[in-house]
Simulated assay, not measured.
Amino acid sequence: MLGCFIVTSMSDASKPLRRGWTTGACATAATRAALMALWGEGFPVKARITLPKGERPEFAISYQACGSDWAEAGIIKDAGDDPDVTHGAEIRAHVRASSGGVIFKAGAGVGTVTKAGLPIGVGEPAINPVPRDMMTAQVVEMAKRLGQSPDVEITISIPDGESIAAKTWNPRLGIVGGLSVLGTTGVVRPFSCAAWIASIHRGIDVARAEGLTHVSGCTGATSERTVQAHHKLPDAAMLDMGDFVGGMLKYLVKHPVDRVTIGGGIGKIAKLAQGEMDLHSKRGQVDLQFWADTLDLPALAHANTALEASQIAGAVFAQTVAQKALETVQARFLEAADGRKITYDIIVIDRAGAILASAS
Rank of each mutant, 00 (worst) to 15 (best):
L2Y: 05
A325P: 04
A198I: 10
K167D: 11
A336N: 07
L2H: 10
V45N: 09
E153P: 03
K250G: 08
R225S: 11
A292Y: 12
A236S: 11
L356P: 11
V95T: 07
A273E: 05
A313I: 07
A108M: 02
L233E: 05
A270V: 05
S14W: 07
A97Q: 11
G265T: 08
R283Q: 12
I156A: 03
G217K: 00
D82E: 14
S223A: 15
H87P: 09
R202Y: 08
R132L: 06
D243M: 11
V7G: 05
D133K: 15
V130N: 01
G54L: 03
Q274C: 06
S192Q: 10
T320W: 09
A30L: 07
T114M: 05
I197S: 03
G54E: 09
R189P: 01
G247P: 08
G24H: 08
R32Y: 06
G246A: 06
S68C: 05
F290D: 12
V139I: 15
E162V: 15
I156G: 00
F290Q: 13
L17N: 01
G264V: 14
I269A: 03
A194N: 13
W39H: 14
P83H: 08
L295H: 12
V215N: 06
D151G: 08
T31C: 09
I103T: 10
A207S: 08
A325E: 07
R145P: 05
K144F: 14
V181R: 03
S192T: 09
A292L: 13
G265C: 05
A165L: 12
I75G: 04
A25F: 06
D205C: 14
L38C: 10
G242Q: 02
I120A: 02
G100H: 07
K167T: 12
A89S: 13
G100R: 03
V227Q: 04
A207L: 09
S281F: 04
A166M: 15
I197V: 15
R56T: 15
T185E: 11
A322W: 02
K268N: 05
V206Y: 00
L38D: 04
L182G: 08
V206A: 01
D345P: 01
R332H: 12
T155N: 06
K144I: 10
I204N: 03
G107K: 13
Q274R: 12
D133S: 12
